[in-house]
């Protein structure tokens, strides 16, 4: 009985999360280039060292807003050449520009870490990007 109730709530809650719970108003549609870039990001396993919204590996910086903070040219150069600590993974020029487009897409989805936020007395955080 209790198991069944919990199982049903799991099903309904999941359905909600898949739809309305994660509906966000702002941000453009993903472009074809960014779509390919998403693939590149996975194929080179960038997430082993980088995060979006703080989620991922911690060897490198969070990349959620790297494009608005540093610019596409900077990011592209970084990826193409590598540095002392970021390896040059040997991406082709197309792959590089695709992945930069993807980073640009991610950038439009929100701000991390949040800049404008309120902390309530009971410890929750409201931030500017939350859907109203």
């Amino acid at each position: 009985m209790i198991f069944g109730t919990l199982f049903l709530s799991f099903v309904f809650y999941s359905a909600y999360i898949y739809t309305a719970g994660t509906e966000v108003a702002h941000g453009p549609e993903i472009s074809d280039e960014a779509r390919r870039g998403q693939q590149v990001y996975q194929e080179y396993n960038c997430m082993a060292c980088h995060q979006f919204y703080g989620l991922g590996g911690y060897m490198g910086p969070d990349l959620t807003n790297v494009i608005s903070n540093r610019g596409a040219a900077y990011a592209g150069a970084f990826i193409a050449a590598g540095t002392a600590t970021m390896p040059n993974l040997g991406l082709s020029p197309e792959e590089t520009s695709d992945v930069v487009a993807f980073l640009g897409f991610v950038d439009t989805t929100g701000t991390y870490p949040p800049k404008n936020y309120d902390v309530t007395w009971y410890g929750t955080v409201r931030q500017e990007d939350d859907p109203q």
Partner: peptide, 20 residues
């Protein structure tokens, strides 16, 4: 298991009550 996972994503913009 069913409802607690959202502490991983407090800072991802989504419906607030999920987090609460």
């Amino acid at each position: 298991l069913i409802f607690g996972w959202a502490h991983h994503t407090y800072l991802v913009p989504s419906q607030t009550w999920i987090r609460v």
